[in-house]
Simulated assay, not measured.
Amino acid sequence: MRWFSLALALVAPSQAALRFGCSTISIQRLDPLVEPGHIPSAHVHQIVGGNAFNATMSSGQNNNIAETATCTSCFFSEDFSNYWTAVMYFKARNGTYKRVPIVANSQLEGSTDGMTIYYTQKDFNSNGNAKITAFPPGFRMTVGSPATTSKSGVVKGLSYTCLQTINTRGSETQEFPTKACPAGIMAIHHFPACWDGKNLDSPDHQSHMYSTTKTGTFVEAGPCPASHPVRMPQLAYETIWDTTKFNDKSQWPADGSQPFVWSMGDRTGYATHGDYVFGWKGDSLQRAMDSSCMFQACGNGKPLLSQNAAAINKCKIKPTVNEDTEGWLTELPSAM
């Protein structure tokens, strides 16, 4: 479904949604949520957002990364949050691996790779006249699990689209596409939006949140339960992996199976997952959720501050883990 033009054309005052790009700040084996302090972590991640990202990133309300970061790779310059997912590799017929590059989504300003980030209130048409509470400082969560091995274990909201063009949507699957995709593979991560109102994190990084999503779309599926009564923004990631560079079927497995694999070794796609650490400056995200702006029109002080392409793509962090993640590899970095 082509919803970009439709969403951008809507002008009702009840609209309220953020859609923006964030360039990659690092690709390396670090995971401060699931494996804090481990150098390296179990598998490679692609990370976007603020440059306060590091191997530890202590939790708690007093550990506000918006106060320690000095730059962000996101369009909105008040967003120092960190967003990360696993990295996709191509496994050639000869058994070697190469990282699949990331390309920017369409109708975004500035970013050259990385992710598209969404914060929506209800859907792309309305905020539902309900109060949306922004994530508080110190908030963290994950969605999905690198240990998922079956389709039945995949949570709603995690999916893939085999892109016919960069603007096509629909026909989502919970496993990797099995055919060559003309414009790449888009990985989609929808996070839960109901909070228990108490815990900034939980031991599994998920129990403090509850998802009402039933269809895996940008539309809420129902009211928050009494156990998790606080409605928060619907956070979602889209990452476009440029698999077109590997569409030569002569390099695919001899049995014709799809050749892509997540950095933790998953070839099904079921183990896709995403991580989030909140880091918006002050009340900036709350102001956006209280507004009626749409997408990048929320920038330039209406109500959020934004930055140009040079600033977006300049923000990087130095690698902590010294290993090869690029070029043709005989093993995935997680196996070395």
Rank of each mutant, 00 (worst) to 15 (best):
N63D: 15
A221W: 01
V87Y: 02
T142Q: 07
H228S: 09
R93I: 15
T217N: 12
A221F: 03
M141F: 08
P101W: 03
G197V: 04
P192N: 12
P137D: 14
N129H: 14
Y89C: 09
W262V: 08
S284I: 08
I25Y: 02
K156E: 11
D283G: 00
S306D: 06
A66I: 01
K249N: 06
G95R: 10
M141W: 03
A180V: 13
C181F: 04
R169V: 00
T96Q: 05
N127G: 06
C315G: 02
S227K: 07
T173C: 09
P259G: 07
K98P: 02
G265W: 07
N322Q: 15
W84A: 02
N94T: 10
P203H: 09
C224D: 05
A12D: 12
C162F: 11
Q251I: 06
K316M: 12
N51A: 09
N125V: 14
P259A: 09
P146K: 01
C298K: 03
F135D: 02
P192D: 11
W241A: 00
F20C: 03
I312Q: 06
N64P: 01
A236S: 14
D266M: 12
P146E: 05
F76T: 05
Q286L: 05
W328Y: 13
K281G: 00
Y97C: 06
K179Y: 10
P223I: 02
W252E: 04
H38R: 13
R287I: 10
Q296K: 02
D201F: 12
F80K: 04
D266S: 11
Q234E: 08
S145V: 10
L304I: 11
H38F: 13
Q258P: 02
F76Y: 15
Q251C: 06
T239L: 15
T133M: 12
T168F: 03
P136D: 13
P303D: 15
L30H: 03
G128P: 05
A52H: 02
S211H: 08
A187N: 05
A9Q: 13
A180Y: 11
Q174D: 10
T149N: 13
R2F: 06
G327K: 02
V154F: 05
N127H: 07
G274K: 00
Q286C: 10
I102S: 08
V321C: 07
